[in-house]
Each structure stands twice: as C-alpha cells, then as structure tokens.
Amino acid sequence: MALIAAALAVVALVLFCLDIAVGESHLPLGRVLDVLTGGGTRAQRFIVLESRLPRALTALMVGIALGLAGAITQSILHNPLAAPDMLGITSGASLGAVTVLVGTGGAGTGLAATVGAPLAALVGGLLTAVAIYLLAWGRSATGERGVTGLRLVLIGIGINALLTAGISWLLTRASLADAQRAQLWLSGSLNAADRAHLAPAAIATTVLALVALGSARTLAALRLGAETTRALGVRIQTQQAILIGAAVIGASVATAAVGPVGFVALAGPQIARRLLRTPGEPLIGSALIGAILVVGADVASRAVFPIDLPVGVVTAAFGGPFLLYLLVRINRKATVS
C-alpha cells in the first residue's frame, strides 16, 4: 500500500511539472525543474514562476481539497455518492458566485470578480451545508436524535436540484455579457488562476488536511456502527459536525477559487479505495488522486484537446461514466444482498 501511495505521489509530481511545461510556449521538463531549483534565464523564470506556477499550484490545492472533502463525507455518511458536488455544497457556492457576477453588471470584471464572487461562493457553500444539516436532523429508526447518512444524502440531492434551478433562473435574467461571464466561471476554469486565488485555496487546504489527518482515528471509528463508535468514546454528532464542517469549507474554498470542478470529490476517494485496497476511503490516497485528476485534467485541456477547455469540462467528461459505474455496482450489491 505504501508503494502505491508513493507511486501516486510521483504521478502527481510529474503531472504538476507537465502543467507548468505546457502552454503557448512549451518548455522541456528538465528546464522546468531547473527553474524551480533556482536556475534558468530571466524570461524562463518569469514564464515558470510568475505565469504558470500559480495556476499549477492552484490546481494542486483544489484537487487535494476536493479529494479530502469527498473522503470525509463518504466515510461519515457511509455512501460513495456522498460528495460535496452531489450534496449541493458546490451548487450553493456556485449560486452565491453567480448572484454576484450577474448582479453587478460591468463591475463584475473588477473587484466583484476577484473578491466578491469567491467570497459569495464561500458563503453560499457554508449556508447550504447548514441548511442541509438542519433539515436532515431528526430521529433515527432506533429513536436517537441526530443526522443519519441516508437522510442527509437525500435532502442534499433535493437541495442540489433547487440550487441548480436557481442558477439557471439567474442566467436567464442576466444580460448576455454577464451570463457569459458567469457561464465561464461555472465551467470550472483555471485560466484566471493567480496568486490571489492561490492563497485562500492553499490556506483552506492546509487546514482541511490538518483536521482530517488529526482526526484519522476518529474518522475510522465513525465508519463503524453507531454502537461500536459510541463504545470507543467518540461523540458522534460533535465529531460529525466538525469533520463535515471542515470538508464543506475545503470544498467551498476550492469552488470559490476556480469555479465548480465536478466529480473529483466523488471519484477521487473511490479510486483511491480500490487502488490501495482499504476498507474505507483513505485520506492521503484520496488527496493524491484528487490532485492527479485536477492537475491531469488541466494538462489534458491544453495539451491533448485542440482547444483550451475548462478543467471542469474535462473532469465532468470523466466523472459522468464513473458515476454510472458506481450506480451499477451499488445496484448489483443491493440485488445480491
């Protein structure tokens, strides 16, 4: 398992360097490594360090955050479909950002685009998470009060549909220019990624990683039944709220940085679980797979396809078939049992 994790880390590093190397003027990988270690000409240092490194680092941070967020929610809710983008968190963040982008007119290209939209995305994601949690609160079949995984997933899917409809309504009411600007953001593009987008994404990802890794044993206990978890001394509702809150913040900040990047939080933990052959969704493996998916999609969008596609379009093209695969597997297990 350690060898597979190390191999995933190497793949993520290679893709990270490729993400810096590709562009209008391609650079050899050796030259990229030379610049990153302090060498290269002034022009090469500008291209690598100022132009492309912030974008690659943002893609890396977004992938790690989404991978960790998906691993936390899927582990706690015991459902492979329980990812932030399926539960409506990403849609809540998107609705907040689109509200700012289409409601500011021409100002949407200035301060509102660089600060207002990301901040509104963060607030939208947090408010959506609070609403879903409150609506999912109730009594379980055993009479215990709290939040159950199935109820939260079902309510999240319903909220997601409502928020998606709200986004569509806002786009129909917006001017053509504002609708185009909002649609570009909704596609999950890294084209505008810079140091201003990188800083909050890096901070949120670091905090999320510290909370997740520091709570690894608690998370493993929460994967067990409620009685076993309580016997281990874990305060279920409190720990669930803390971990889900950290996952929501990580996913919301990642969405605020580049727009919604679909299916990474859903697919990353499931791929990691199958590669590492673990009983639950592995945190480090999920983070690495998330990074590989986002950075790899950014490389593919510029090096494989004839046009520069938004990274969200590439991940959606991969995630759609993977979601069908998960649904088929879940249906087969239900049929067998």
Results as ranks from 00 to 15, higher is better:
Q237P: 00
V295C: 05
Q74M: 04
S140E: 14
R42G: 01
S337V: 14
G143A: 01
L283P: 10
V115H: 06
V10W: 03
T58G: 07
A113E: 11
A334V: 05
A93C: 11
S252D: 07
A204D: 13
F305G: 10
V336M: 02
G158D: 11
A117P: 12
P118A: 10
G96M: 02
V102Q: 02
Q237K: 03
A43G: 04
V299L: 02
V248A: 07
L232G: 13
A65Q: 07
V102D: 01
A12V: 03
D298S: 13
A201R: 02
L162M: 14
N160A: 14
F263H: 07
I203Y: 11
L101F: 04
Q270T: 02
T238C: 05
A193H: 07
G285V: 00
T73N: 08
V10C: 08
L18E: 10
D308F: 02
G225M: 10
V304K: 06
I242S: 05
R235T: 08
A82K: 03
L198C: 12
L60T: 13
V62I: 15
G262F: 13
G320W: 00
G138D: 05
A82W: 00
G233P: 06
A202S: 05
A161W: 03
G116T: 07
V261D: 08
T278S: 09
G319D: 13
A297L: 03
A65P: 09
I4S: 15
L122W: 09
N79S: 04
R145F: 08
L243F: 01
L68P: 10
A56L: 08
L15F: 08
Y133E: 11
V102P: 04
D308C: 00
L135T: 10
V22D: 11
